[in-house]
């Protein structure tokens, strides 16, 4: 998903440092916001703090989705040059490895916690209702959209302007 604007048809040119900060905000605030809402219980303040963090994470994603670096990971091949294609392919391969690892660890965790709870050994938290699953799927969707761009942003040195 790339948000193309009329002013920046090839994406908004953001500094690599800015993209890195936005990615850190997205990857830190989204799960933290979800956890705060989970543990808030009756605390309105904690619940609101959680919502605020998730909103901040989504705002960071909205900015990233219109950036030139994100365009490189989402644009059809015919609209990229040879360097962009090569970088995108390498980043997609690395992102796929990381994403697969995260999903596998998550599935393993849920399998083990369900098994342990069924045997009455240890009752660790696991998703039980629609809200939990929505939060997890939302996070995975954001991660899958942004991970190739993150590989690019953290893997290359910025190019100075002409």
């Amino acid at each position: 998903m790339f948000i193309r604007s009329k002013a920046h048809p090839f994406g908004r040119p953001l500094q690599t440092g800015t993209v890195r900060i936005l990615l850190i905000v997205l990857y830190a605030f989204y799960p933290l916001g979800c956890i705060l809402q989970l543990v808030a219980g009756g605390s309105v303040a904690l619940g609101l703090a959680g919502v605020a963090l998730v909103v901040a994470a989504l705002a960071a994603f909205a900015v990233l989705a219109g950036s030139s670096l994100h365009r490189q990971t989402q644009e059809p091949e015919s609209l990229l040059d040879e360097r962009e294609r090569e970088e995108r392919n390498r980043a997609s391969f690395q992102a796929h490895s990381v994403f697969s690892g995260i999903v596998l660890i998550g599935v393993l965790y849920m399998m083990l916690t369900a098994d342990m709870a069924a045997n009455g050994k240890l009752d660790l938290w696991r998703p039980t209702d629609g809200t939990h699953w929505n939060a997890i799927f939302g996070g995975l969707i954001l991660l899958s959209f942004t991970l190739p761009g993150a590989v690019l942003a953290f893997g290359k040195a910025p190019v100075e302007a002409d």
Binding site: F10, L80, D81, E82, R83, E84, K156, A157, V159, D162
Partner: peptide, 22 residues
Amino acid sequence: VGVNPQTIGYLERGDYAPSVEL
């Protein structure tokens, strides 16, 4: 030559080796 201006910067810095065509 039909590439992104950033690609010229990468070439000049030696961070990218061009294809034969480029």
